[in-house]
Amino acid sequence: MKFLVCISKAPDTTTKIAFTDNNTKFNNDKVVFIVNPYDEWYALVRALELKEKLGGSVTVINVGAADTDAIIRKALAIGADDAVRIDAEPIDAMFVAKQIAEYVKANAYDIVFCGKETIDYNGSEVGGMIAGLLDWGYVSLASSLELNGSIATLNREIAGGHETVEVNIPFVLSAAKGMAEARIPNMRGIMAARTKPVAIVAAVASENYTSILSYELPKEKTGVKLVSADNVGELVSLLHNDAKVI
């Protein structure tokens, strides 16, 4: 089995979000970038577990400029065999999906893994777009994956529960919580990652679909109204009369 895991660079979850250039650009000054948690904790680790069980290989792919090297090395340290970097600053989800779909067309893979969303643009887009471009099956928000020959069985989150689905390889999935437990790279992995191959591939041309014109921060709360623990009835009346939510 050949597994391809899409990994994205994302700002660390504790990042204080700020903008520059008249609020048109994300201020990445002093920001620590990590592998997008859904890509790392769930997609990558499940691909590694399946490879360990069934054999094959795990390749990670990233669309990004040279500054994504650190997150690619992290994925290699966790256990991916090799990596591909499509050398371009990602413009939007469709741009990223087109790059990856083109790469997959030229290099046979059995399963393409994505995370359920990135924690920066929260779109849940790339996996579905890759599936649409390749005309492969797509299972979104998958919380488990088992393989039996060429047939995969997955659980997929739905409103108020989950459903079990079957799909033949090749297909694309987006991984949600439950699919695997995060792994911490060990010293041997970190050393090995330094010499694992990273192929740098030129990007293909793509149309301009969407762009971000500007950013703003949400309105701050005006301050908390405290109610005494001895007078919980006041909270009930505030929620009913002032906030009108009950």
């Binding site: 939007d92 989800a93 469709m94 999906a97 929260n122 779109g123 849940s124 887009e125 790339v126 996996g127 579905g128 777009m129 890759i130 599936a131 649409g132 471009l133 797509y138 979104s140 928000l141 989150e157 739905i158 409103a159 149309e207 679909y209 969407t210």
Partner: peptide, 20 residues
């Protein structure tokens, strides 16, 4: 759940810009 699943696939098929 279903919008998140279908819309990106449709974006690819329709060659559409998508705001999620």
């Amino acid at each position: 759940y279903s919008g998140k699943a279908i819309a990106p696939v449709l974006a690819a098929k329709m060659n559409a810009g998508y705001v999620a």
